[in-house]
């Protein structure tokens, strides 16, 4: 059993109104010095069996097919030592 984490973030050029709302709330609460907030998603996948390179490649497909929309989002697959980024 292995745990793989997939992080999904809006591409930098895509406006993130949720992050902007959080940033606005922080400044209203008096937390100074935070000049930007961007909100993303984190998926924790429990994987049966061993994490082979083939499985990790498959998990990139999982991320690109469903977890992220590559038109507007970047994702990163973190699988212990064998982590990889995809844009």
């Amino acid at each position: 059993m292995a745990r793989v984490v997939v992080e999904v973030m809006l591409k930098p050029e895509i406006l993130d109104p949720q992050g902007k709302a959080v940033q606005g709330a922080l400044s209203r609460l008096g937390f100074a010095g935070i000049s930007g907030v961007r909100q993303g998603k984190r998926f924790e996948l429990e994987i049966d069996g061993e994490l082979t390179p083939e499985r990790i490649t498959q998990l990139h497909d999982v991320a690109a097919t469903l977890l992220a929309n590559p038109v507007i989002e970047d994702f990163a697959v973190h699988a212990g030592e064998a982590s990889g980024r995809a844009r």
């Binding site: 809006l10 895509i14 406006l15 109104p17 949720q18 902007k20 709302a21 929309n69 038109v71 507007i72």
Partner: peptide
């Protein structure tokens, strides 16, 4: 339709929230 790639692009949250 955008998610299915029948149309290009995507729809995101309204800019004014």
């Amino acid at each position: 339709l955008c998610e299915a790639h029948l149309l290009p692009g995507a729809l995101i949250r309204n800019s004014h929230r």
